[in-house]
Design a protein around this nucleic acid. Sequence first.
RNA 1: GCCGGUGUAGCUCAGGGGUAGAGCGGUUGUUUUGUAAACAACUGGUCGGGGGUUCGAAUCCCUCCACCGGCUCCA
Length: 661
Amino acid sequence: MSPLIDVVLPDGSVKALESPASGLDVASSIGSRLAKAALAIIVNGELSDLSREIPDGAHVSVVTASSSEGLEVLRHSTAHVMAQAVTRLWPGTHFAIGPTIDNGFYYDFELPNDARFTESDLEKIENEMRAIVREDQPFVRRELLRDEGLELFADQPFKVEIIRSVSAGATGEDVREAGDGTVVSTYRNSDNFVDLCRGPHVPSTAKLGFFKLMRVAGAYWRGDEKRPQLQRIYGTAWDSKDALDQHLFRLEEAERRDHRLLGRELDLFSFPSELGPGLAVFHPKGGTIRRVMEEYSRQRHVEAGYEFVYTPHITKGDLFETSGHLQWFADGMYPPMELDDGQNYYLKPMNCPFHLLIFKSRQRSYRELPLRMFEFGTVYRYEKSGVVHGLTRVRGMTQDDAHILCTREQMREELVSLLNFVLDLLREFGLNDFYLELSTRPEGKAVGSDQEWQEAEETLESVARAAGLELVLDAGGGAFYGPKISVQARDAIGRTHQMSTIQLDFQLPQRFDATYIAADSLRTRPIMIHRALFGSIERFMAILIEHYAGALPTWLAPEQVHVLSVSGIYDDYAHEVALACRAAGLRAQAEPATEPLGARIRRSKMEKVPYILVVGEDDVRNGTVGVNARGSNDPERGVAMKDFIDRVAAESLAHASPEVG
RNA sequence: GCCGGUGUAGCUCAGGGGUAGAGCGGUUGUUUUGUAAACAACUGGUCGGGGGUUCGAAUCCCUCCACCGGCUCCA
């Protein structure tokens, strides 16, 4: 009889198993359904293959696709299957890395003879993957010495590079691929496919099957644009057809919300090709949304003690020499205009140097600090041709930009109140699920001393922690002049967007030699805080449009009320109602009865107007309206005109959407 | 900037060496409508730009541009 070992299950209970026992044995001992669903096992906190032998006394937890770990294992294994399929179809392919990502995975390849994947290849690859799944190939783990690994992958240059880099002490992605360096781990599926991989993997390809290859794209090896560009295939993988279908449905939902599509359908903005890429024009309705956003923002900034400034769009290059932009940011700037006097003039990519000049326009006293200067500053950035994207990435944009100059002592408190201000403002626009990101010093392209950076980063971090929100580190993501906190918001369908940025800057005041006279009569260097709460108005509008799927809350809706008369003989009353709404500050208009009512209702509904009023004979007699609120299938009849107006005015003030029952 | 894809009417799309199409939209007329599409007529295009092959190019080839999906970058 074999000796027994004990394993501790997640609920604390202890199970005795015959030794040796694998992860699969553990799962089987609990139940046959679990054994079937098991994909991997966590042994003493370490995610491992099911085939792994379990040591006596281990704490174990069986991993199925219902956990995020399980899905990740499943996706990673599917990536291997894809790599095998590709090497079957294109013998001689070099494969690079194939990690999991949100909802799926990708794998980077270099095809022989510089061949390229096309979209139609995806179906071929999927079919080959299905064949591999049917073959029920086991994933067999084997650990090799470094030199054995180098030999095994001698014809796979990317794998060789990974093995070399992990044995040289690399971390991160490479370790995930290969292990710790002295020993490398591999997974073999069949005689002709073995991959370098740390694992773990599902026991067999038969555990997989609910996947779809989404798209093919170029991707630089190691994300470095100076290195070879590989062919990347993105896929998604799930544990059931249902889950896969749901995911595909969510993608369709995101497509339906695409602000570029809604922007055209709702007649909000466009990108005339006559203007060039990334340059938008706002149509009257988009202009209304923007104006309401800006007006509200202005009002809040006045209340928060900001002063409003205005600065020009172009300047002599000297300014950006002083600020360091020409040294650090020239790639992002439009090329200069050379004028007759031999001066180079630039479109401004940022507003900060101008605000500093305002600060410097006369001597400042500590009594004036903190000085908060706000501007809707329109800036131009020469974005690379491949990156412009709707309103979220443009070449001309307006920032709700402000620069706060304060003393070192004031800095912390200013940041704390600023963060509260931001979050409160964003909540008024209907976003309420946030986390913070701290971006630190960018290696190799930063100005300032180590000590200054350290102080700036520590201050920002402590302020961010004090806010009590989740904090994520974005190492090396800061601007060249200082670190930043950015507020990330999750939208209605769970995507995250970078919203506000708050940057700390010890550099610019120094470069411009900005000073104030402190209480001790000494010239003292102020601290500068850069901040944009919307980020850019364009991007923020895009996010709102997608968040609300175009159905903006009443206060932001470009048209709030449409008044439709049942027939032309009540058009006068419809106008009267619209005028009364407008007198109460609502955006309302009467639509003439040129078409049947149903057609006009449909038109207004498609425009996502919050309130459609229908008026007819009863209403003319009683001074009432029929109210059809957006989202409701159940119109109200005979509502007193004044009651309706009061209700919508209140709703608008509260920044709410129509209440539907 | 790089890789892949796509450019036909305002929008969505069909056509694929031999007279440029549909639906929606727009305009006009008729219709007077109680909650998501009345009827009719009309209107609409250098088939992204340029070059080439050809008797003939929207269609085949080259090139540029724009857009879409990624990479790098980023508000």
